[in-house]
Write a protein that binds this DNA or RNA. Sequence first.
DNA 1: AATGAATGAGCATTCATTCAT
DNA 2: CATGAATGAATGCTCATTCAT
Lengths: 214, 214, 214, 214
Amino acid sequence: MTNETHNKAEQDQDGADNSKYVKKKLLAIEAAAKVFADKGFHGATTQDIAAEMGIQQGSLYYYFKSKEQALQEVCEYGFEHYVTRMKKICDKDQPFEAKMLAIVTSHLTNYRSKHSAMKVHNDQRLYLPTERRAKIKKLGSEYRDLLEQVLAEGIEKNVLRANLDTHFIAYSIIGICNSWGSNLVRDDDLDLFDTIEQCSDLILHGTINTTPKM
Amino acid sequence: MTNETHNKAEQDQDGADNSKYVKKKLLAIEAAAKVFADKGFHGATTQDIAAEMGIQQGSLYYYFKSKEQALQEVCEYGFEHYVTRMKKICDKDQPFEAKMLAIVTSHLTNYRSKHSAMKVHNDQRLYLPTERRAKIKKLGSEYRDLLEQVLAEGIEKNVLRANLDTHFIAYSIIGICNSWGSNLVRDDDLDLFDTIEQCSDLILHGTINTTPKM
Amino acid sequence: MTNETHNKAEQDQDGADNSKYVKKKLLAIEAAAKVFADKGFHGATTQDIAAEMGIQQGSLYYYFKSKEQALQEVCEYGFEHYVTRMKKICDKDQPFEAKMLAIVTSHLTNYRSKHSAMKVHNDQRLYLPTERRAKIKKLGSEYRDLLEQVLAEGIEKNVLRANLDTHFIAYSIIGICNSWGSNLVRDDDLDLFDTIEQCSDLILHGTINTTPKM
Amino acid sequence: MTNETHNKAEQDQDGADNSKYVKKKLLAIEAAAKVFADKGFHGATTQDIAAEMGIQQGSLYYYFKSKEQALQEVCEYGFEHYVTRMKKICDKDQPFEAKMLAIVTSHLTNYRSKHSAMKVHNDQRLYLPTERRAKIKKLGSEYRDLLEQVLAEGIEKNVLRANLDTHFIAYSIIGICNSWGSNLVRDDDLDLFDTIEQCSDLILHGTINTTPKM
DNA sequence: AATGAATGAGCATTCATTCAT
DNA sequence: CATGAATGAATGCTCATTCAT
């Protein structure tokens, strides 16, 4: 619990009807996310973020103690429900293919809804000092671990090839999904469900034609 | 004799024995690449680059007219032999699998040799103003086009599944390779050839076990 | 509410009680005028201007968007009430000699009150890019036109010699006045009214003795 | 005689056949004059001057020890034959009107031939530190003194009005001439001899019509 | 809850100057 | 004579941050 200062920017859950603050804080995070996504952390100015919110530059400090904290919060926000959702998917008793589809869907859908924050998480989190990255890192490994478990299960059940390196495949899946996630953010015309389907298909079946040649 | 401008930073191809300049200019590009890769374009300072080269900040402007131009040159440098190599691979008369392996090898090897410049190209080129990105963009599409051709060939020869969307697959391959490329840059212990093999395998065969269950 | 830009330096006429800003902005213009007059536009630093105001260098940019804009505003300020006053003089129904005296008085008095700004207008306005000079140019021609009209009237009424080139004389009057204006700025001991009288006398009667020789 | 250093830039009259150096040095002064006239002392760069001469920036230091020295030499060069010529005019036994015409002619002609240097002398000499201005100042007062003598003579001979303040008139004449000199530099279409005539006429006869009204 | 005003450190860039070759 | 290479100090400008109101 941060009880060192009484700066509003540090107390997030006062319990009472600070609902107005909470709502505006969310807007602040989203504004920061958008601006960081567009210009990068160092390329963005607090003035940019304030303008995006429609407030004055100085007022921003009511919501964030510093620019760095804004980045941290954006990254955490972009990753928040992520692991939670992944856990739910893992816990369900479903065939491997269904799980994989659910995972890809979850990943890419997140890009479309919290797009900016996700992009910021992927591209800009490295500009945070190590201390600030702790929570984000933990979430990241949790996510990867869960994914690896799903893959291990697949192998065990003989659905996946026995010689697969689950660590490698997990990274690759995340890589493909992030890559398409960026495209989804950049290109509004790109169809979400089509992309999901194609990603899953590639991950599952690769590109080689396995039906016997005639 | 270029007697309109005497700024070395503007003349790139004098032909004569300006080999000393050319050599140091290359060092400048590599220093800039390293610094941009580490800190991002906006997070890096010209002082950082100069320090990396072992010269004074002001002297850097003997080699680059501006920080932006440095970024441009790094991006172009990182992509230079890229398309050339891809063309060579495409022109050879080889089975599809061999070509794909060659492509992945080329892509990932480039990351290890010109690692920083490649990373900068991928992550920072968007911070260049559109005019400066023209050449880079052209190289990018050429690369993608060549890759799509290879895939189309594979489909035609019945090596690849007929229902593949070459555009989608091309993007995905580039996505996986860049994702692993970043890992190769970040983690020196990662084995290059192992990574190459696993990437190719995933792209070709996916994850699903196709041998009949017993 | 201007909510597109929140840079004070861009909003000049808010109307409301931004009187504090307006007052300090005026001080800023006068400080800039003094410094530009002393050291020339390129020889002056923003640090000089800030020091003259007693604020920090960076704070200067709250009042001016750029050094160039400061020069522009100083020039316009130095010329502002100028044409207005000239118009009033022209409109009055007075004999030519009285008008000419009024014009010289107005010109030289302005040097003493807004001395620096006037000097800057005369000596430094050429360092402004053409776009920034538009308003200043317009004011300048208006001034000259009015002066030429006064002269034309004088000729018409047979007070002035018929063979005078009004354009040439107008330029010359401005030349003499500016020349003495500079002296007035440089030398505080110079008597304003004496200078005015002598200037008018020279312009009107030249130097030649017209009383018949004995 | 400066015999402290052996820098070529300080030895001007070696006696031998340094005619090549002398010629190029003159070109250097004229190049500096042009550039200073266009951009002002502080606005001009040594690179500009070198470019104007067609040499490299570093090579300029063969001709000038410093930028300031270049300014000094330009100013002196622009004023050099000036006083000499004035002396010749004064010494001749001519009626006052002829002398005045000769003076104005000399002044304005100089602007057309050494135009840039003259302009620099007038507008930029103040940016020199006091020590460097000694010679220029001396020349300036000599010039003014001679002019005042001519005027005093005119009064004595009853050609000029007895109540004239020679000091004031001398300054005014210089003021008018410089003002038109600048115009001559700026506007190539302006007719030199027409300007000379009109200036003399204004100085001598003023603007007032002295012929009795009918 | 928000803002206007100010700050001060940092940054890209310029430029006069030097000097070995 | 001339240049290429380098320097380092200065300068315009930006921006995160603070704080009284």
